[in-house]
Design a protein around this nucleic acid. Structure first.
Lengths: 156, 156
DNA sequence: ATATTTGCAAAGAGTTTGCATCATA
DNA sequence: TATGATGCAAACTCTTTGCAAATAT
């Protein structure tokens, strides 16, 4: 979700969260992970593991797919990125720290993703916790349909 | 979502929908598809393509995975089943005709799925259509958290 | 007769794993 | 120096595709 906050500042805070997590779990700092996190916070889209892999500057870093997947997993664990499972059995990711939890509308024709945030969802979640007798700590809502872009034909 | 209606009756109506669709699209009736649809309406869970494949009575039918996938695709097209993309990049399906559109809570510990239905979601969808200037024709809402089953340890 | 649907096997895409090497604490 | 992390390649899983044979209309 777009934000007026400085990207660098958010990257900085995400880095600190990662740092803390690394200390907590007695892991190790690596240049690969730092670089990947920076790449992620530089982009403003939903990207796949392979998209990220392809944007690695091959002159400066020799980063393998395994490392990309390992790093994404770690970033997920400490909550600085989120992961979505869209309609083709592949995962897409987006930076999460400093960005409001939000949901997605996906155009079935042109695949455009529109993000939105509706506070009423939180009321629904709260009341469902009681009704279902569960503890809810996250959600993903996907709306599917057709956008009305000139460029998009929409439903025929 | 559990329903008090007769399973056979629902299967019957789903079959008719399929029948109409087959005529409309000038496709052909096949015993494989009929059998698979019956298998689907006999079960009450969320199943993968392979789960369905494995329940085929090998004595009576020699059904390939390709046919399973083809059939599921067709059933989806005419709306008698629904498809979900859960957290491991595989698809699960469930019968849809005669069952209320509903959403899912997934326990992160024991993977149990609890279904629910909240009418407030429809209000949200309606108003988002105006705000986002889109046409919404379906949605999927997944809530994640911990259930409070005795059998489930929940969050540690 | 015609063209859809099938089974089979192979290909494909995305992700995970095994292992030797590297490098951080 | 002990162990976590890496790169590489192979393995794996789920899904799709190509093709010849079967079958519904």
């Amino acid at each position: 979700m777009s934000s007026s906050k400085n990207i660098l500042e958010l990257f900085d805070k995400a880095s600190k969260i990662l740092e803390d997590y690394i200390i907590l779990k007695k892991l190790r700092r690596t240049p690969e992970r730092n670089y990947l996190l920076k790449l992620i916070y530089q982009r403003n889209d939903h990207f796949g593991a392979d998209d990220l892999f392809l944007t690695v500057d091959k002159e400066r870093f020799n980063i393998s797919k395994a490392t990309v997947y390992n790093s994404l997993e770690l970033f997920l664990e400490c909550g600085i990125i989120t992961k979505h499972y869209l309609n083709n059995n592949t995962s897409i990711y987006e930076k999460a720290y400093g960005f409001k939890q939000h949901d997605h509308f996906i155009c079935q024709e042109c695949k455009k993703i529109i993000e939105f945030c509706d506070p009423r969802l939180y009321q629904i979640k709260k009341s469902l916790e009681e009704v279902l007798k569960v503890e809810i700590n996250s959600h993903q809502l996907y709306l599917y349909g057709y956008c009305k872009d000139k460029k998009c034909k929409g439903k025929l």
